[in-house]
Design a protein around this nucleic acid. Structure first.
Lengths: 143, 143
DNA sequence: TATTGTTATACTCTATAACTATA
DNA sequence: TATAGTTATAGAGTATAACAATA
């Protein structure tokens, strides 16, 4: 008989929520939430973009991008530049401070990785890494 | 240089949120949310329990257990029985209907697993399964 | 008229605090 | 007085809808 708790979906959902909660706790000191990191990451890897594009890439409502961008702009982590050819558009781009913050986040995430994968052997850890990389790429996450 | 997007924490968080959202969409037709499944699972694997214990095991507030249990009771998926030795306590236990619903959830989760791991080779899939099983056990998830 | 961004509003999820009943 | 459960209230996060500026 199949059991819910032995599916990839269930374990991934629960372990993923744990990982996100603990990552969120760590970046809280930087005044960031996971979604802010996602937005900065989209700009870093995809280059400057208008808000509606970001909303599509992140899979969130355009109105949410407004508040995320407001917050990041207040932190000087991104810039909003009005497009002179089409003045309705705001071009978002990451700043040096944004890159610095992403670096801090990377450090914290790497530390967290150590804790989270503590129970795994080296081979198991590499296998997990490989599988997650494949799935992330297939899901369209930034590489 | 370290990149956020190549950490286990980041990938796990994003992929886990995707998995949960898609699982939630599938069980919606059964009038269930992921937390309802978690509660039934706790009763199925741990046996009958009082509400405060469930709250601790699920890591949620006792008041949330009330509404989750109300809903599951209305579906006849669980039973609440007043403890005669200590009439403040309600003993929650899963019913036949609850087990049937868990079976449906398992079927839906297994189907979803197929979709989610579509891009993986057999070896990669098994490696992922092994690593997630280890991590789930270490995190105290039901086995 | 259509589109981009913004603001106003509402909904979902969940926690904290106040309350009821039992102990 | 302490504990189990419940109800009332509040906050975070996010979406939908109305709106303003520009095309």
């Amino acid at each position: 008989m199949n059991r819910v708790q032995s599916t990839y979906s269930f374990r991934m959902g629960v372990l993923g929520a744990m990982a996100e909660a603990r990552f969120a706790a760590r970046i809280d000191a930087l005044a960031l939430k996971p979604k802010h990191v996602g937005l900065m990451l989209a700009l870093e890897t995809g280059g400057p973009a208008v808000q509606l594009d970001i909303a599509r890439r992140l899979g969130v409502a355009p109105s949410l991008v407004v508040s995320l961008a407001d917050h990041l702009e207040a932190l000087s982590a991104i810039q909003r530049v009005r497009d002179q050819d089409d003045r309705r558009r705001q071009l978002l781009s990451i700043t040096g401070e944004g890159r610095r913050l992403l670096g801090e986040c990377a450090k914290l995430a790497a530390e967290l990785d150590e804790e989270l994968t503590e129970g795994l052997g080296e081979a198991e850890r590499e296998a997990l890494d490989g599988a997650l990389r494949t799935l992330a790429a297939r899901a369209g996450l930034p590489t």
